[in-house]
Design a protein around this nucleic acid. Structure first.
Lengths: 130, 130
DNA sequence: CAGCATCCAAAAGGATACTG
DNA sequence: CAGTATCCTTTTGGATGCTG
């Protein structure tokens, strides 16, 4: 592990340092930028959804990953889980205030991805031509 | 694969649909939000860096992953690789114009992480108390 | 220095079956 | 419906050794 052998680390991350593998911000970053985090958070951006709705909405996710990621986001305080005790139980997930702040902050990034993914694909093709 | 069995997907992603596992935006999103993508891009935000500088700066990354992720970002047109033919060769990496646009778009998100990771950690502790 | 190749360990992820 | 449990496959990642 390279934690000890640090080069002068820049200040511009903001004091706390996500480049350090020990920094809490690094764990938070990993949770959000994991394979399903952003997708789930974005799916919930416009209101609560049920387990099965999320599964149907997010292409390629398995029940295991959906449930696992949801649990993680609930633990992180980004998503709230509500059970209505009917039979069968109706469970829905929605963003917390903290989670909503996060999706707001993600907006610009997601818009970039949407607007520039074609550029990236083009760069890939150009690169592969060589 | 759940691709066929889609529930009505919302329009608010922007027309193209990263919820679809087949969408190019999804691949781009995966590249950036992979384990090292954001970290590398951020490290390069304030100027070119050499291979060994990047390795030293990013805690926990192995040579293999560094080289692999860099190659991916170069292929995506987000990072440029420059070799000065000295002996030994001096190789440096820097953001392209496209990559710079991306790090700009990531800024708000990264700031959020920095400002709120303590809140997330607190939520975790509170959750674990139960 | 900047890396690629190889091998191996660990973690993530998927399919399926089952439960309250 | 909303999951959990289990098993198995795939992917990821690290350590090491080698090259121009």
């Amino acid at each position: 592990m390279t934690v000890g052998s640090h080069v002068a680390r820049p200040e511009w991350w903001g004091g706390s340092d996500a480049f350090d593998i020990e920094c809490p911000a690094r764990e938070v970053l990993d949770h959000i930028t994991g394979r399903w985090g952003v997708l789930l958070l974005t799916a919930l951006e416009h209101g609560p959804l049920r387990f099965s709705e999320l599964r149907a909405m997010i292409g390629g996710i398995s029940e295991k990953m959906l449930s696992q990621t949801l649990r993680m986001l609930v633990r992180d305080g980004l998503v709230a889980r509500t059970v209505e005790p009917t039979t069968p139980p109706r469970v829905s997930y929605e963003l917390t205030a903290l989670g909503r702040g996060l999706t707001d902050a993600l907006r610009t990034f997601l818009n970039w991805v949407h607007r520039h993914s074609a550029d990236v694909m083009a760069a890939q093709r150009e690169h592969d031509r060589q």
